[in-house]
Design a protein around this nucleic acid. Structure first.
Length: 279
DNA sequence: CCTATCACCTGCAGGC
DNA sequence: TGCCTGCAGGTGATAG
């Protein structure tokens, strides 16, 4: 389940592995993977374009082309593979194949077909396009600070965990790192976000950045489905403190980690270290 | 505007 | 063995 660190790892890996190839052909094998435009128009636009840059905003991966920006969201299980045409692929789960003039192929694999591709004109303001219109500042965006978070959060009636998962507040955190950030804050994930002060929000952002940065340096975290296109899979995992650790001892106090449901998401926490603050 | 719920998908685990 | 149910979860649409 790719979150910001995993998408960043994919971005760096593809930039290193693919470079700047020119697109020769595109095969859309599952048309619904392309949002808003037809597979035919999508394919026609991409042919002859060269990949100029690889960018990322939150969990969105951006391929900057000559005339377009190809936006990719991996959602739950999207993965990329760079392979030769002669190499076999999984026909059931490979939904997009981009062929390059140098003979290589970029293959998009997604077991559950949740991922999406969007295509926008390069000169358009990407942040105004449909895919990113409701996306807030990236966690590492320098415009983001505790005051900005406080202004956006203190009057809302949602929990800390919901706030962390709300991409319009700050973009890039998913279910795994949300639990890790709640643990770092020593707060119950169900703590009302409105009880946090601006200083608390500053600490929240600092923890988020520290944890995500550590995960990036580990090459992303793997639980069950993420692999980078180089095949890096679980060998350099960030040590998770609480997520998916039900019935294991808390690394801080030894109390057994519990699992509960917060806003429909499976949520792991230490019942002793993480108290629910009321005011 | 704000919040809650469902749909989208498939694989897998657990119950019987 | 095999069928059925529930669960996993990011996002967008829809409902209230």
């Amino acid at each position: 389940m790719p979150e910001l660190p995993e998408v960043e790892t994919v971005r760096r890996t593809l930039a290193y592995q693919l470079g700047h190839p020119q697109i020769a052909d595109v095969a859309v094998r599952w048309p619904r993977i392309v949002a808003d435009i037809s597979a035919t128009d999508f394919t026609a636009a991409l042919i002859n374009q060269t990949i100029r840059e690889y960018k990322r905003i939150g969990k969105y991966l951006l391929f900057v082309l000559d005339d377009y920006i190809l936006v990719s969201h991996l959602r739950m299980e999207g993965k990329y593979y760079v392979q030769r045409p002669s190499e076999p692929f999984d026909p059931k789960h490979t939904h997009l194949i981009i062929s390059f003039t140098d003979g290589r192929e970029l293959r998009y694999h997604d077991t559950r077909k949740f991922g999406r591709f969007y295509l926008y004109e390069r000169q358009a303001d990407i942040r105004c396009q449909k895919a990113l219109a409701h996306c807030g500042y990236d966690v590492f965006d320098e415009r983001l600070n505790g005051k900005v978070l406080y202004d956006r959060l203190h009057s809302r009636r949602i929990t800390l965990k919901q706030a962390l998962l709300d991409q319009s507040v700050m973009a890039g955190i998913g279910n795994i790192y949300a639990d890790e950030i709640c643990f770092a804050m020593r707060l119950d994930p169900e703590t009302p976000i409105a009880v946090l002060s601006a200083a608390d929000d500053e600490r929240l952002l600092a923890h988020a950045r520290r944890i995500l940065q550590a995960a990036i340096e580990c090459g992303g975290t793997t639980i069950r489905s993420y692999t980078s296109s180089l095949g890096v899979d679980g060998r350099f995992q960030l040590k998770l403190q609480v997520h998916a650790k039900a019935d294991e001892p808390c690394p801080c106090c030894g109390t057994l980690i519990r699992k509960k449901r917060v806003a429909t998401r499976g949520t792991y926490y230490c019942p002793k270290c993480q108290r629910k603050r009321i005011r």
